[in-house]
Computed example of a mutant assay.
Amino acid sequence: MTTSNTLLGALAPKGEAAKLATNIVTVLLGTLLLTLSAKISVPVWPVPVTMQTFAVAALAAAFGWRIGVATVLAYLVEGASGLPVFASGGGLAYFAGPTTGFLLGYLPMAYIIGRATDLGASNRPFTLFGAMLLGDAVLFVCGFVWLMAMAGHASWIDQANVVGSAFAKAVQPFIIWDILKMGLAALTVTGAWALLKPKR
């Protein structure tokens, strides 16, 4: 489920049963971290500023793409089932709101970043940072496409300038912050790898 190029793979136990148990616990703990990161937010409308992009990037880089995607998927299932794991609650109705594109966009983001570390980016800060920026850009595209799809029903969208209004309200304010968060996530993971390397 992961490779020796990731932090999780490097720390994983040898036995298959132990690995399976470790992966299950890792996914559950990962969803808890995603929940906590969602609660660290600035409640701006329509999309709150949270630490979730940092958490998704760091977890995917530490776990690899399979466990990273599984963690995000489990988190989304928890939210859809009604658990209050999102920034403002949970439940199926939450997926009719303006943040749905971003929530679903965490899946390809986790895949891109996790794939990079599976291929050996754990000890290459600039490579990992580039992968995180790419994953984050895909996330923004998913979020923006969703916002455009629901633009006709959104009071905060200027119907005379739908594209510009959606971009200005729900994408542009987050770009600088996400670049900083991706840099922090890349340094966190590559720093942890550097500390772990002498023990491997």
Rank of each mutant, 00 (worst) to 15 (best):
Y111N: 07
A21T: 12
T31P: 10
N23D: 12
F86Q: 00
I112A: 02
L20T: 15
R66Q: 10
T50A: 06
L196C: 07
L187D: 00
A61Q: 09
L32R: 01
S165R: 12
A17C: 11
A137W: 13
T22W: 12
M109V: 06
A160T: 15
A137F: 13
I112C: 06
P13R: 01
Y75Q: 08
L133T: 10
M150P: 04
A185F: 05
F86C: 00
V171K: 04
L7E: 11
A10P: 04
G143F: 01
A110D: 04
R124I: 14
G68H: 01
S41H: 09
A74Q: 00
L92W: 15
T53Q: 10
Y75P: 11
P84V: 04
T35Y: 06
N123Q: 14
I176R: 12
F95E: 07
L29K: 02
G152L: 02
K181D: 01
T99G: 05
K197Y: 09
M51H: 14
L139P: 03
S37A: 14
L128D: 14
N123F: 14
A116G: 07
P84L: 00
T190M: 00
L133K: 08
L11I: 05
M150L: 10
P46W: 02
T100W: 09
D118Y: 09
G135V: 06
T26I: 12
Y106N: 14
I176P: 11
G15N: 07
S41K: 10
G89R: 02
A60D: 02
P108G: 04
F86P: 01
Q159M: 01
A12H: 00
K197E: 15
F167Q: 05
R115V: 09
G97D: 01
A192N: 03
L139D: 15
A121F: 14
V138G: 09
V145M: 08
A149V: 07
P125Y: 09
A168R: 14
L128S: 04
T190E: 00
G89K: 05
D118T: 10
F167C: 11
S4N: 14
G120H: 13
Y106P: 10
G130N: 03
I175Q: 06
R115W: 15
K14Q: 12
F54W: 12
N5Q: 12
A61G: 05
L83R: 04
A87V: 12
I67D: 12
K19Q: 06
L29N: 03
A194L: 11
F129V: 03
S88E: 14
V72R: 05
S41M: 11
L32C: 15
K19H: 08
V189Y: 01
